[in-house]
Design a protein around this nucleic acid. Structure first.
Lengths: 214, 214
DNA sequence: GTCTATATCTAGATAGAC
DNA sequence: GTCTATCTAGATATAGAC
């Protein structure tokens, strides 16, 4: 098999196993076994297990950056807000092993700590810009003290909705409705600060998606 | 040394190390070393490492149950709300290793999964009762759909504020202000649904504590 | 590129003397 | 109750043949 293919196979197998069992519970032997290659072969393509994790993180970060980099339009609508959250939640679900315990995974793969921090900082900045845009268009009204706390709460929800949901839902994120519920949760934090009609629009959107699970 | 004392020493040493380094990163040898006893001695007092974790969890759960079991008075005031949150956040800080990754720790110590679930269920029930009490006294107004999502958001915040804070604050929970900020975050989720004066009371309380770090 | 075989290390846990 | 010595298992990673 060509170099690229085996490398890719290892990455995909690792991602699946990490998501299912948790990265610390998956050995390189297990990955090789599941991919039907030898442990030695795996180590021909990757220096070590960390390399695999880092590569997966990099792919995730690249895609998330693309999602949050969407320029904030002057006329930000409820659908836009929902849509961007949906894209980022979807992506995080695909790399959910990263979110079970970011601290622990960072401590085992040192280079990841800075990467995580940077990513979170950019995500927070994107949320901040979005709120500013809503304020300027008159769709939102919030004090700067409240905004600070709201951003914290949003980041908390956007980071930890995955392990939170996995703890309660027996089938974890397989149930598509879990994501919808988590998005609705994040949006409910924002809604109280929105103006009358923008608020109604968002609320209706949430109700619609909650009652139409894919 | 008497049996009780060594057992207790192991528990306290384990708790300190688990909190500092994360339970998966602390070996029984390390615990014995730190406690100045032999590995063999540790295994005389505990069947295995899981036993230590379970014992620590049990102590935590007992204390948390006591805190949330406080009967909800008819005239629930802002201070009461703040005080109960403060007690539970304080306790969770003392056993923070349990919250870094509840799922992972449950998967390594099977009996813990049900225990965690039960505890979270009781905690959610307590929050629900508190909200009901606020509604009945007229201090709060919220639809049943909103209430469901609010309870989710509160549980998310009350469960994961610890790893969230540890990720951002360099000194982790040593900084007393981190707890205050987390409590303020949880309360800000509730405030929008409160009546005018109750809302003002809570907001002022939060501002007071935030500007007076212990 | 891929395999088999193996080296190395660490963690959990036990045996048996004192 | 406590210690020293040791066993076992499993994980990461490497060596060298094909």
């Amino acid at each position: 098999m060509a170099k690229r293919n085996t490398r890719e196979l290892v990455l995909q197998t690792s991602l699946a196993l990490f998501n299912e069992l948790g990265e610390p519970n998956v050995s390189t032997n297990r990955i090789a076994d599941e991919a039907n290659i030898s442990p030695g072969n795996l180590y021909y393509h990757f220096r070590n297990k960390q390399d695999i994790v880092v590569e997966l993180f990099t792919r995730f970060a690249t895609q998330l950056d693309r999602i949050i980099a969407v320029p904030v339009s002057a006329a930000l609508r409820a659908e836009d807000l929902w849509f961007q959250l949906h894209l980022s939640f979807e992506l995080k679900g695909q790399y959910r092993f990263l979110f079970r315990n970011p601290i622990d995974i960072s401590s085992r793969v040192p280079s990841l700590r800075r990467a995580f921090m940077g990513l979170f900082r950019r995500e927070r900045k994107a949320a901040e810009d979005m709120i500013s845009s809503l304020e300027q268009s008159g769709a939102m009204c919030i004090s700067s003290r409240e905004k600070e706390i709201l951003l914290n709460n949003l980041m908390l929800a956007m980071t930890y909705w995955i392990p939170f949901a996995e703890m309660y839902e027996e089938h974890g994120l397989q149930d598509g409705n879990v994501q919808i519920k988590s998005i609705a949760g994040a949006l409910q934090m924002i809604i109280p600060y929105m103006a009358e009609d923008a608020r109604a629009e968002l609320t209706n959107l949430a109700i619609f998606y909650l009652s139409h699970p894919n």
